[in-house]
Nucleic acid binder design. Structure first.
Lengths: 353, 353
DNA sequence: TTGCCAATCCGAAACGCTTCGGGCAAGCCT
DNA sequence: AGGCTTGCCCGAAGCGTTTCGGATTGGCAA
């Protein structure tokens, strides 16, 4: 068996109490004692017994993630990337990362509850937040730290890591506006996702700034999938009234669908239609070979480490300001935007596929 | 806070000891008392405090999986399926499932060590075993229970869940032999994987039983990928000497590659070449739309629950015999096998793509 | 009657840690 | 000099469970 506090106390001549306090860096232990204790601990190859610590203190050193049930979850390659990213960062910080994959009939909130009082997890990473997310309310009511990937409101009072998605929407729209586009379609994600609505607001704001009234029929909500991208494009392009001359894709999968639909319609990018996309650089070989597309870019992969750090910060009671991070995105020009062709400036008859 | 044993003891008028024993189904508690205690526990919504239980019993109730670093790992959709399966089963058994995604420069064996004494994990699931797997030796030397997905030898002395892969190889080969094929190619996986070699042995045995000498040039080892399937097929089909009339695919991805290569060569299935496959029903939409293929079938998805149960059994010191399970597979006929055409019965000149 | 056994039960001691409430000097102030 | 603060330390009481070693019955054989 491993050495215990008692062993260290014995070899250093201190009490168990003081050894514990020394190792936990309390402030009523002299620096010299702390050093002596640390040395002894190392020499004895001491490893704290997590169960004991947990039982006594309520803290466990374990953090968790409840994966939403199949279906309500992002694509597998993203899940794997996320799990890898979180796991790596947490283990770097000496925390155990437990993963609970919720089953379809399971109540996700209840799962958190069970994990808290069964295993006394110290905190949770919450992904895929929805407005008024019940998980947030529950965890706060139980006083359990959490961190959000994304956020549910502009200035929330919980730790999070997020992009400025309103700004993403604005920038994407402006990229098209600046080239003269006025009818700008937005193939967006599911409206219950917070970031989707933020981007939608950005789109509307940028349009209004440019004196264009956002047309509801030029925005399509749906899953972040290729088929949604394709179907939404077909719908927008075959509607009566003026067709969009520029399209915004919520992510690369949607962009892929857009490209498919456009080529089916015999429309070229950027000659006939301009396309911009927010690229979160999802892994997946099917996205490797995509036409170069202008837009915003912000690798999702870079959000896991900050997310993990924010959670640990929250557990350690650091001030909220340190725990709220807004990720950067870049704006990239890759030639998928051109000025709208003259024939697209005015209404033309509906296009039929 | 949640109810404790003490609360149950108070309401039932029993001692904490007896309540504990009742709930754990010890045999010196009367059936009537057990029932009473169970009712009280339910009424109070009692949940055992895992930390206390662990502290007292020396176990942590936490099991782990170290995911091999990126690259040495199966495709993402399988990883997710596995994680979901294991997580669900473990949480059903009241265990926490911690996942550590190893990074490329990390020593996987050392990681297990750190997890054991940092988190006092109770046991590990080991996937992707290789012959003489160092993880097995290490965990055994530290006395930590483990369970293998697969195995490194025929009758190992550790818990495992595996198919009879030798039999899989035999059956696949026989499906072709029975229809009259004699030159049977095997597009197999990586030779360092144990199951790959077992299937290879099965192939050889079945051939020998039928009086056919296994030709080394008719077996190709490589990653379980579409491109390996395609390239191996092209190589076998364009070699001088008699070409195979039947092909065995190690899994569906390989089969997909085989189909691609065959159609490139203008060869039809089953008229020109027969194909059989071992289908572990990997998820992934790219495999949904595959030509119907005869062969063996055994859903990988069904292995996670038994795997988890075996690990828990090992932790609870159950006899080894209960912890070694060989999964079933079925043999399915789906019309991709026919008798070899006469022109293939004898040597023909090498085929050039 | 006595002794013994099986069937039930219980008290108390762990398990290793944190933390509350103090104690004891040494140094400062007034 | 007395009283206060400050710095460092300790004993002991938990945390909720398991488990060891008895204790208490009633029944049954000797």
């Amino acid at each position: 068996m491993s050495a215990t506090l008692k062993d260290i106390a014995a070899t250093t001549g201190l009490s168990v109490t003081q050894v514990s306090r020394a190792l936990n860096d309390h402030d009523d232990v002299s620096a010299e004692t702390k050093a002596r204790v640390r040395d002894a601990a190392r020499a004895l190859d001491y490893r704290p017994n997590l169960s004991a610590r947990r039982l006594a203190s309520g803290r466990s050193g374990i953090v968790g993630l409840v994966l939403p049930p199949e279906g309500r979850t992002p694509r597998d390659s993203m899940v794997v990337q996320m799990v890898r990213g979180l796991s790596a960062e947490f283990s770097r910080m000496g925390r155990l990362f437990v993963l609970h994959a919720a089953e379809p009939e399971e109540d996700v909130v209840a799962v958190h509850g069970r994990l808290i009082d069964g295993g006394s997890l110290d905190g949770f990473v919450l992904i895929e937040p929805v407005p008024d997310d019940p998980r947030i309310a529950y965890l706060r009511s139980r006083g359990v730290p959490l961190v959000l990937h994304g956020r549910t409101e502009d200035r929330p009072n919980y730790p999070f890591f997020d992009l400025d998605n309103r700004e993403v929407g604005r920038r994407l729209t402006r990229m098209l506006l600046e080239r003269g586009h006025r009818r700008i379609g937005f193939v967006n994600g599911l409206p219950e996702m917070c970031y989707v609505m933020r981007r939608s607001e950005g789109w509307q704001e940028a349009l209004r700034e440019a004196g264009v009234a956002p047309a509801p029929e030029l925005q399509e909500f749906g899953a972040m999938s290729e088929s949604h991208g394709a179907l939404a494009t077909l719908r927008m392009m075959s509607e009566s009234g003026p067709r969009p001359t520029g399209l915004i894709a919520g992510n690369m999968l949607i962009a892929k669908g857009i490209y498919g639909a456009l080529s089916m319609l015999g429309l070229r990018v950027p000659e006939d239609v301009s396309v911009v996309v927010h690229d979160d650089q999802l892994p997946g070989e099917d996205l490797m070979a995509m036409p170069a597309t202008s837009g915003t870019r912000s690798p999702l992969a870079e959000s896991w480490a900050p997310l993990a750090r924010a959670l640990i910060g929250a557990i350690e009671n650091r001030p909220l300001a340190e725990l709220q991070e807004t990720g950067q995105f870049e704006v990239v020009e890759r030639g998928s935007v051109a000025a709208p062709g003259p024939e697209f400036r005015t209404a033309s008859e509906p296009f039929r596929a």
